[in-house]
Every structure is written in structure tokens, then in C-alpha cells.
Simulated assay, not measured.
Amino acid sequence: MTAQHPNHRSTRLERTPDPQLAGAVLDDIDARPGSATSLARTVLGAYVRDLGGWIAIADFTELLALLDIPAPSTRTAITRLKSKGVLHAESRSGRAGYALTEPALAMFARGDPRIFGFRQMAAGDAWRLLSFGIPESERAARHQLRRRLTAIGCGTVSAGLWIYPEYLAAEVAAIVTALELDAYVTSFRATDPVVPGSLRQAAAQWWDLDNLAARHRTFYQRHRDILNEPTERNTFARFTLMLDEWRTLPYIDPGLPNEMLPADWPGPASVHLFAEARQRYLEPSRHRVRTLVEKP
């Protein structure tokens, strides 16, 4: 990451980050879990990749119908995903359909370790501090930077100083570069932070732990009965709805070490629940999708 003095002045006019450049690196964080667009993205990442990255329009519509998404909402979701560069129209064997773009395939590949392999810091693991002084001419990019840092689990020490686990360093660097802000940013690897009061108190100030705990509890309460489901036809819908809600949690949860979390932290319960459900239901759900799209 290129570093420059925070007081560096820019004579450029205010610039809006190029959505095509940013979109290729900064994964879409706008879709609300449970919405047609979010569920379409989840189906693409979990199942259409497994099919080779292409699906007929009729089959895609039928899959989303199993999730109670009506055809008009599916068409709207497809339009949005095309505009974001996730899909492009492609016909095969006389059937109209859509294929995942190369940036979308890379996006889903980046997300796999996060979604399917929850990371948590251990005592003594390194931190990364990000310091920036971004001029007013770049305020649109500055807003996007703050928004994206929050979305991947970074904490706010102060307006221009952010903290996150060292294992998020590559993701943060990609965001900074995509927004063309390298010239205004300096990062530091750090260990053993010294804070007023306790680390637990500091974490509660740097992250919105109350909201994060509520998200974990809601997820667990909504899906805790899934392990009682038989591996049958309805497994696809139940697990996909669970996956769609889960996939945002490992992004906003940075995986803080236990000594920085409240004693009754609900994260481990939801992490364990999803891990068990994934092991039990992901492959049967993929088999259900393959059976549907390969039908005569």
C-alpha cells in the first residue's frame, strides 16, 4: 500500500469512484438478506457455480420460485445483477440464460473463506491500524471507504484511524486501491494495544457489539431448528434461506478474541449452527438443484 503524508493536498476536482473499477474488487454489500436480489446472489454463488457458471432463465426462475420469489421479482433481480456486472446474457443449446462474469466468479471465490470458514483472533494475534487524511475533493471516495471498512468488520478508533485483525489486511488494501486512495492512507501492523480501561471496554467503543450480538441471536433463533430437518426436497429452500442470512454475518463480525467480547457473547452458537447445517445440507441442496436443471 502506498503511503503519503496525511496532509497531502489534491488539486483534482471532486471525483466519484468508478463503479466498474470498484465493483470488480468491492463486493456488493447492498442487497438486503431475504430480498430477491440477495437470494439470487446466494443461489448463483452456492449452486450456479457448481453447475459450471451458467443457468437457463427458466431454471433460474424455477429455483427462485422454490424460495417464494415470484417471476417479476426474479426478472428485476437479474436486471440489477447484470447492471452490477455479476451476470451477462448467454444462450446455450438454443436456451436463453445467464453466465457468471469473471469478476463475479472472483468475487464469490473471495467470499468462500469468509462465509464457510469463520475466522477468530487468538490472544496475541496481530492487529492492523489504518490511518488516513483524505481531502474534501475526495469526499465521495472517503464516504465509500468508511462504508466499506464497516461492512467488512473494521472498527473505528477515531474518524481517521481504524483497527482490524491482521488477516483482513489484504481485503482492506484491495478496497483502498479500488477507490484510488492509496496516496492518502498509511497502515501499521500492531500488537498489544494499550487502552484506557480494559480491552473489552475499548472493543465496545470501536465496534457496535450490541447490534452484532443481536444479529447473531436473531440468526440462531430463526434457524436453530434446521438440524431437525430431514434431508429431503424442502432442504434446499430451508438451507438457502439460512445461507442467505448467514453470509453477511462473517463480514460484519471481525472475529475478535474472547478477552475483548462480553462473557455471554452469542457468536459461537450461531457459528456452530451454520457449520453443522452446511456440513449436513449443502451437498444435498446442490444435488436438488442439479436434478432440477438436468430434468428432461
Rank of each mutant, 00 (worst) to 15 (best):
P135V: 08
E166Y: 09
A123S: 13
L227K: 07
T191I: 09
Y220W: 14
L26V: 15
T231Y: 00
L249P: 06
G117K: 09
D192A: 14
H287Y: 03
R148T: 11
L39I: 01
T42M: 14
M260K: 04
K295D: 06
A159M: 10
S93T: 06
R288Q: 12
T16R: 14
F116M: 07
G153V: 10
T240M: 09
V185A: 02
P254T: 04
D112F: 10
D244P: 11
Y220T: 13
P266L: 03
G155Q: 10
A178K: 02
P33A: 08
G45C: 08
T231N: 07
A173N: 10
R222V: 07
A104R: 15
E102C: 00
E276P: 00
L51N: 03
Y220Q: 06
R224I: 00
W127N: 06
N258L: 04
G45E: 11
S83L: 10
A178G: 12
F118S: 08
A178M: 05
T231P: 02
Y251R: 13
A159H: 10
D253I: 04
R142G: 01
S270F: 03
H88K: 15
W206M: 13
S285V: 00
T74K: 01
I78K: 01
T16D: 11
P6G: 09
P70A: 10
Q120R: 15
R15A: 14
L66M: 13
S10R: 09
D244R: 08
G133T: 07
F274I: 08
T11Y: 10
L179P: 12
M242C: 11
T79A: 15
P33R: 04
D28K: 03
P72G: 02
G267S: 09
A140I: 12
V25D: 06
Q20T: 12
T101C: 05
W54E: 05
G85L: 05
P33G: 05
F274K: 04
L292N: 05
P113D: 01
A159T: 13
T42G: 15
A275C: 05
V43T: 14
L282W: 07
L81K: 09
